[in-house]
Each structure stands twice: as structure tokens, then as C-alpha cells.
Design a protein around this nucleic acid. Structure first.
Length: 407
DNA sequence: ACTCCACAGGAATTGAGGGGTG
DNA sequence: CACCCCTCAATTCCTGTGGAGT
């Protein structure tokens, strides 16, 4: 007998629960779709496109809605007179403003061999290439979709240039529009005033899903994803409730549902039941934390390690100087680079921002001044697990007591 | 009311590392 | 090869801050 065998499965088509699956119909987002339609109307009429800024938390349908509405637009424009709209879509994740521009150029270059490198060229060269390609499209309108624009950070040169391409005579005979999609609606505030006004001509806000909406979404997907009647009645409401309380993200809900299904499959269960959902929800939550922790750079791991040591000897919450002392000792111990205090300070704020550390502001006046107190905000065991299999900190060192690091 | 501790966090700079063109 | 461009962490330097202590 081999390890694998095909057997009865609760899933009919598990891909339907995946993040990149496109359902036939987008539900529970009627309002947003109407907004979208309105925002795109000028383009359809052949006028100058309004720039659109779409924001909302992850997993609330921004990308999907955009894809669907643009697909519809592409289909419908066959019947338009004198309007020819091209859409160029990129995901800005992990790109700088400069790299995003280079990727746009590459999107417009069908020839694989002539792709430009995403580094090395002067910025102006990349932009010039972009304008040339827009001209070559011979479209009346080009819409650039920048998904996850917030990862471009504070450098808004590209966002500044794109809407102005037509007016600055960079491109001829083509109107250029911009659709920015962002998880982070504070992103707008980081932009310079010159960009804010032009990027946000039309804003569309995607609200988190509530439990009722999630239930509808899950029902839609579950119909295709699971074999008929393997889900017990409370599975979908419970999944919706978990995800609704926590994030309001459809992705989150689908993750839980998928996980519940695979737990049931693993156990050779005929049905997916409430218990599977509860365990799935826990695992998903823990999985997210673990993944993020694992992805951190070594220096952050060292820092977390310092925090676990302090935590073990009940010295948390601790202030920055104390954490730095322990960090230095740890770094010495395993012969890692020792970074300056300001750097560690930066890392501390990063870790707090990501929710791994809890920060409390303290002010003890003359006897202590103003400072922050830090402590771990995730289970110590999880942190230790990650540190064990991801760095040079091995079992032995984890068990060291604080004393051996401070002598 | 004023001081002053112990930092927080912004600004500017550097330097190594990715790559380009001619 | 010489010279140039972009990126980003790290570092140095520095100004800002709020309340306990006086």
C-alpha cells in the first residue's frame, strides 16, 4: 500500500476556495460596483478619465470588483463609437515607484526579449519608454491599474506623472487614467499634495464584509467547492461569524472554510462539521502569525529572542535600553552583526506596528523620563518555535537563562 | 512654573549591492 | 572598462516631549 490513495472527498473542486479563483458573479458589492460604474462613465463617453482611488481592507473584493468591471468594460466597448480603451494592470507589491514604471513598460512590450531591466536606467528614460508605448497602442484611452499602490511608499513620482501624461504632451491623442487600489487608506496622507488632488478625483470605499454578507459569499463558493450536503448546517454561519468578527475579509473566511474541509478530509470524515471549523479558525490565525514571524529578517529574530529572554525572567515590559543590552549579549553569543541602538529602535517600532509587540508609553518624569515599554504580544511558544528552526539560535541557547547573557 | 530625564523619532548621509550604456 | 543610476539598511546627529520632582 502506498501513501497515497484516491478516496471519497468532501471537496468537489477545492480550487473554488482559492484566492485567485474568479467567481462568475460578485455578490454583496452592488453599491461599490455602482460607484465604479459612475466613476468610469466619463471614460466611456470619451472624455478625460477620472482618476480613481479604491481603498478598503484586504479581502473585501477590491481587486475582484476592479477586474470584473474592467472585463465588462472591455466587452461593452465593442459597441462604442470612437472610443478604444486599453487597460494595463500591474501589482505594485514589492515594487518601488521606479520598478512599477519599468513593469508597466514591460507589460506593453509583448516581445519577451525586449523587456527592460527594472533597475539601472535613469528614471526619465523609463518614463519616456512608457509614453512611447502608450502612443503605439493607438488607443483613445489607457487606464493604468495599480493594485496595492500603497507599497510604492512615499515616492509618488509615477503617480504624479501618469495623470499628467496627456496634458504635458508626453503622449499624443491618448487620454490616460489611473486606478489605484490600496489596502491602506492612510496611504493617501503620505502623498504629496500635488498627487493627492489628482489621484483621488473619485474615491471608492470598500467596507469590510459583515457576517451576513460573508455567509452569502461562502454559500456561493461552497456550492461548487464541496460535494453536495457534506457541510453540516452550522459550518457556514460559524465560519462567517469567525471571519466577520476578526477581519471582515472574504479571503479569511474562505481560508477557514478550506482548512475545515481539509481537516475533514484528513480525518476521512464524511461531513465537515462545527468542530472542524473551530480548529480551522485557530490554525488559520496561528498560521498567519507564524508566516509573518518567519519572514522577518535575522536581526528582528534576535530582537524577539531578547524579548523572550526578558519575558522568561519576568523583566517585561522592558524599555529600549534594557532590551538593547540583552540584544547585544545575544548577538555576541551567536556572533551575529551587532546593529546600532537607533537601528534596533527602528526594528522595535516595526515589530510593534506588525502587532508582535505591545507598547505602552511611560513617563516617569525626573526619575525615568519619557519612554516606551515593550513586551511580546504573541504567545512566547510560537516565537520560540520560529526562532528554533529559522536561525542560529538553537535549542541550547533558547534554554539559557537571562543570567548567562548579562554577565 | 520650571527643570530635566530618557528617551522617540525625523533628517541627512553613507555605503554596499542590484544593474545599466557606450 | 569607466561612469552612471536606483535601492535600502544602517548610522549619525539632532530636536521634541510630557510629567515627576523641585
Amino acid at each position: 500500500m502506498g501513501r497515497f490513495a484516491q478516496r471519497g472527498d468532501v471537496f468537489a473542486d477545492e480550487d473554488v476556495l482559492r484566492d485567485d479563483y474568479t467567481p462568475d458573479e460578485l455578490i454583496e458589492r452592488d453599491e461599490e460596483m455602482d460607484d465604479y460604474e459612475e466613476a468610469l462613465q466619463p471614460t466611456v463617453n470619451g472624455a478625460q478619465p477620472r482618476n480613481i482611488f479604491v481603498y478598503g481592507e484586504t479581502g473585501v473584493g477590491k481587486t475582484l470588483a476592479t477586474r470584473m468591471i474592467l472585463d465588462e468594460l472591455a466587452e461593452d466597448q465593442d459597441h462604442f463609437d470612437d472610443v478604444h480603451i486599453e487597460v494595463v494592470w500591474i501589482n505594485c507589491k514589492d515594487h518601488t515607484s521606479y520598478q512599477a514604471a519599468a513593469h508597466l513598460v514591460n507589460k506593453l512590450r509583448p516581445d519577451q526579449k525586449k523587456k527592460v531591466s527594472t533597475s539601472g536606467h535613469p528614471r526619465a528614460t523609463i518614463h519616456r519608454m512608457l509614453w512611447e508605448h502608450i502612443d503605439d497602442l493607438e488607443a483613445t484611452h489607457v487606464l493604468f491599474v495599480l493594485d496595492e499602490v500603497d507599497s510604492l511608499g512615499a515616492d509618488d513620482e509615477l503617480l504624479y506623472q501618469i495623470p499628467r501624461a496627456s496634458s504635458n504632451e508626453k503622449v499624443n491623442d491618448t487620454e490616460v487614467g489611473l486606478i489605484g487600489i490600496s489596502n491602506n487608506f492612510k496611504f493617501r496622507e503620505n502623498l504629496s499634495a500635488r498627487v493627492q488632488s489628482s489621484l483621488c478625483e473619485h474615491e471608492i470605499h470598500f467596507k469590510p464584509y459583515d457576517a451576513t454578507q460573508l455567509r452569502a459569499i461562502l454559500t456561493q463558493r461552497a456550492e461548487k467547492a464541496f460535494v453536495d450536503s457534506v457541510l453540516t448546517d452550522d459550518v457556514i454561519p460559524l465560519t462567517a461569524a469567525f471571519a466577520g468578527q476578526d477581519t471582515g475579509s472574504a479571503r479569511h473566511a474562505l481560508d477557514i472554510l478550506y482548512k475545515a474541509g481539509s481537516l475533514a478530509r484528513k480525518e476521512d470524515s464524511d461531513v465537515v462539521a462545527e468542530g472542524h471549523v473551530r480548529r480551522a479558525s485557530e490554525q488559520v490565525e496561528r498560521g498567519v502569525i507564524e508566516e509573518e514571524l518567519r519572514a522577518l529578517p535575522t536581526q528582528s529574530h534576535l530582537l524577539l529572542y531578547a524579548l523572550t529572554i526578558l519575558s522568561k525572567s519576568n523583566e517585561t515590559p522592558a524599555r529600549r535600553t534594557r532590551i538593547y543590552e540583552v540584544y547585544e549579549a545575544v548577538a555576541d553569543r551567536i556572533d551575529a552583526d551587532k546593529k546600532a541602538s537607533r537601528t534596533i529602535h527602528n526594528r522595535l517600532s516595526q515589530l510593534s506596528l506588525k502587532g508582535f509587540l505591545k507598547v505602552t508609553e511611560q513617563n516617569e518624569g525626573l526619575s525615568g523620563g519619557k519612554h516606551y515599554d515593550y513586551e511580546l504580544d504573541v504567545k512566547r511558544e510560537i516565537v520560540e518555535d520560529i526562532l528554533l528552526d529559522n536561525s542560529r539560535l538553537d535549542e541550547v541557547m533558547i534554554d539559557q537563562t537571562l543570567d548567562s547573557y548579562t554577565r
